[in-house]
Amino acid sequence: MHARPDRSPLPRFSLSATLWRGGAFALIWWILAEGRADSWGIGAVTVALATTASLRLAPPGQGRVSFPGLLGFAAFFLVQSAWGGAQVAARAFRSRMDLAPALVDLPVTLPAGMARILLLNTLNLMPGTVSVELRGNRLCLHVLDHRLPVAEEVRQTEAHIARMLRVAA
């Protein structure tokens, strides 16, 4: 599961990515500075620096994020993570702990790169799964209870990520 070495030292400049990220950072700055107008002197410089760093460290990919996809993903994520917390809590408090932990191997259909990493991270916060290893196209997960429909959950997550990032699932 190793990254291919960066082939192109200078990533292609993408105006839309720059604007999107710059806008997001400006919004975060506004929140940090609690909307104070006199913060924008330093704020502009900082946002510019952060955007530059972001573009250098995570070069913009091919497509751009689909906004409805993002909203859908966020809603899915919120519901699932609440459900995940509740599930863990229920199992922790039960007097006879009813766990059936296992490592399961699943195929991944998302393309390599950002999409897969997002999947790994998201699954960590989803009910019952912690990602352990990604080797080739096989994802190894630790599940708290293998009787739960884990594969179904992973497929749904993949679908949401694919829709958001506009990639094939």
Partner: peptide, 22 residues
């Protein structure tokens, strides 16, 4: 409670990443 009761590292990670974050 999960951190204390769950049987191994993996299971305890579940407790930490899900319950605490929620």
């Amino acid at each position: 409670v999960g951190l204390l009761r769950f049987p191994d590292v993996y299971a305890r990670l579940h407790a930490l990443t899900k319950a605490d974050n929620l």
